[in-house]
Amino acid sequence: QTQEFDNEEEARKAEKELRKENRRVTVTQENGRWRVTWD
């Protein structure tokens, strides 16, 4: 699953929550947008 964010702060917040659920999370930056991908 993927979700896009406008800034790193929001993306990192989402990453932190997903990691609490023991998910594999990848955060990438593309064209000024932050993308959080998880399984």
Rank of each mutant, 00 (worst) to 15 (best):
K20Y: 08
A14E: 03
E4C: 09
K16P: 01
K13L: 13
K13G: 06
N7S: 14
A14Q: 11
W38Y: 06
W34G: 00
R24P: 10
E9R: 07
L18K: 07
T28L: 09
T26S: 03
E10H: 04
K16N: 10
T26F: 11
E30W: 10
F5L: 01
E4S: 09
R35P: 00
W34K: 00
Q29P: 08
N31S: 08
Q3H: 07
N31Q: 05
L18H: 11
L18P: 00
L18Q: 04
R19G: 07
K20L: 14
A11E: 00
A11M: 03
R33A: 09
E10W: 02
D6I: 07
E30Q: 11
E15M: 06
K20G: 14
V25Q: 00
T26M: 09
Q1I: 12
V27H: 01
T2D: 06
Q29K: 14
D6H: 07
R33E: 03
T26P: 01
F5N: 01
E17K: 13
E4P: 02
E30R: 09
E9D: 11
T37G: 04
V27S: 02
E17C: 12
W34F: 06
N22Q: 09
R35S: 09
G32M: 05
E9F: 13
E4I: 15
Q29T: 11
V27M: 07
E30K: 10
G32W: 02
T2W: 15
E30T: 10
E30H: 12
R24V: 15
A14T: 05
K16G: 07
T28Y: 07
R33K: 15
A14M: 12
N31F: 08
E15R: 02
K16R: 10
T2N: 08
E21S: 12
W38R: 02
K20A: 12
A14V: 15
T28N: 07
Q29W: 12
E30Y: 11
E4Y: 15
N7F: 09
F5H: 02
T28W: 12
E30S: 08
R12L: 10
N31W: 05
R23W: 14
E21L: 14
K20R: 14
V36R: 00
E9K: 10
R35Y: 12
E17Y: 07
N31T: 02
V25A: 04
Q3I: 15
A14F: 15
T28D: 05
E17V: 08
Q3N: 05
E21K: 13
K16Q: 10
K16M: 15
V36T: 01
E10A: 11
V36G: 00
W38S: 06
T37Y: 06
E17D: 03
R19I: 06
R35K: 12
K20P: 03
W34R: 02
E15K: 01
R33Q: 09
T2S: 14
E30A: 08
L18M: 10
R35I: 15
V25M: 02
G32Y: 03
R35E: 04
R35T: 14
R12Y: 07
T37A: 04
D39H: 09
E4A: 04
K20I: 09
V25H: 01
V27D: 00
R12P: 01
K13S: 09
E15W: 07
Q3K: 14
K13H: 13
R35M: 14
T26I: 14
N22A: 08
T26L: 09
R35Q: 11
E8L: 03
W38H: 05
E10M: 07
R19P: 02
T28R: 07
Q1D: 09
T26D: 05
W34N: 00
R24E: 14
R23L: 15
F5R: 00
E15G: 04
R33G: 05
R23H: 10
W34L: 01
E4R: 03
R23M: 14
G32P: 02
W38I: 06
Q29R: 10
T2A: 07
Q1Y: 07
E8W: 06
Q1P: 07
Q3V: 10
R12I: 06
R19Q: 09
E9Y: 11
N7T: 15
R12W: 07
T37W: 14
D39V: 14
T2K: 05
W38Q: 02
R23Y: 15
Q3C: 15
E9T: 10
N31I: 03
K13M: 11
D39Y: 09
T2E: 11
N7G: 06
F5V: 02
E10I: 04
T2G: 07
L18T: 02
E21R: 11
Q3G: 04
R19T: 09
Q1M: 12
T37L: 06
A11Q: 00
A11F: 02
N22H: 06
D6Q: 08
K13D: 12
R23I: 14
Q29C: 10
L18N: 03
Q1W: 15
W34M: 00
W38D: 03
R24T: 15
N31K: 08
K16I: 11
V36H: 01
R35D: 02
N7L: 08
N31P: 02
F5A: 01
W34T: 00
A14P: 00
T26W: 07
V25K: 01
Q1V: 07
A14L: 15
E8R: 02
D6K: 05
E9P: 11
E21H: 14
L18V: 02
E4D: 10
T26V: 14
R23K: 13
Q1A: 12
R35A: 08
E30F: 09
E10G: 05
Q3T: 06
E17A: 13
